[in-house]
Computed example of a mutant assay.
Amino acid sequence: MRKLVYSIASTLDGFIAGPDGADPTGPDGFWPITPDYIQHMVATYPETLPAGAREALGVTAEGTHFDTVLEGRKSYEIGLAAGVPDAYPHLRHLVFSATLTEVPAPAVELVAGDPAAKVRELKREDGKDIWLVGGAQLAGALYSEIDRLIIKLSPLTIGNGIPLFSRDAAFDPRGWRLTDHTALENGAFFLTYDR
């Protein structure tokens, strides 16, 4: 059965974005994107790079981990504001929203219903694992369905911002087992935990 994998960049103090929710890797972002970070992403998770980055880096690799990406409305709208209606055309791309009625990219699937029910349906399908790109609201709604965490831990603190899971997530303590880790020269860690 396919796994739901929440692969997300986090600060040491547990935030995935600043208080305004803007893209921390964008032009005015605070996230350090170093050459060793990019090299690791290209070599290990090429399918998680957005189309623009794949093109700029000459990445054509299909990837071995994911064939589906899930995104919440707020995360999706960051791309829309940047003029990118489908950042992941190389993956099956689902956007979860109770308020959007349409999306400008025909290949992007809009899901208005229960995220957990949809993920359980996706897990039963054949294919590679399912990547939850964000944001915190969707991650909170899918907390009980997440099978693996890949935390791209940056040697950075920001004090306040959008947490890994929204404050609406249920209080449900879970144990995780470290199954892989990679340390980069810049001080970042890629930490993989399985439930």
Rank of each mutant, 00 (worst) to 15 (best):
M1Y: 04
K3F: 07
S7I: 07
T11V: 13
T11R: 06
T11C: 13
L12S: 05
D13R: 02
D13L: 03
I16H: 12
A17Y: 06
G18N: 02
T25E: 07
P32A: 01
P35Q: 02
D36K: 06
H40S: 09
A43Q: 05
T44N: 13
Y45H: 11
P46H: 14
P46G: 12
E47K: 03
P50Q: 13
P50R: 10
A51M: 07
G52Q: 11
G52K: 10
R54C: 13
R54W: 07
A56R: 12
V69F: 01
V69C: 11
Y76I: 01
E77K: 02
I78E: 04
A82K: 11
A87P: 05
P89G: 08
H93W: 01
H93D: 07
L94V: 11
T99P: 14
L100W: 03
T101S: 09
P104T: 11
P104D: 15
P106N: 12
P106R: 08
A107H: 10
L110N: 03
V111N: 10
K118L: 13
V119W: 08
R120K: 15
E121I: 01
L122G: 02
E125D: 14
G127K: 01
L132E: 04
L132V: 02
G134I: 04
G134W: 02
Q137M: 13
Q137E: 12
A141F: 05
E145I: 05
R148I: 14
R148T: 13
L149F: 15
I151T: 00
K152H: 11
S154R: 12
L156E: 15
I158D: 00
I158K: 00
G159Y: 03
I162C: 01
P163N: 11
L164P: 00
F165Y: 15
R174T: 15
R177Y: 13
L178S: 06
T179V: 12
T179C: 02
D180A: 14
T192N: 06
T192C: 10
Y193F: 08
D194I: 04
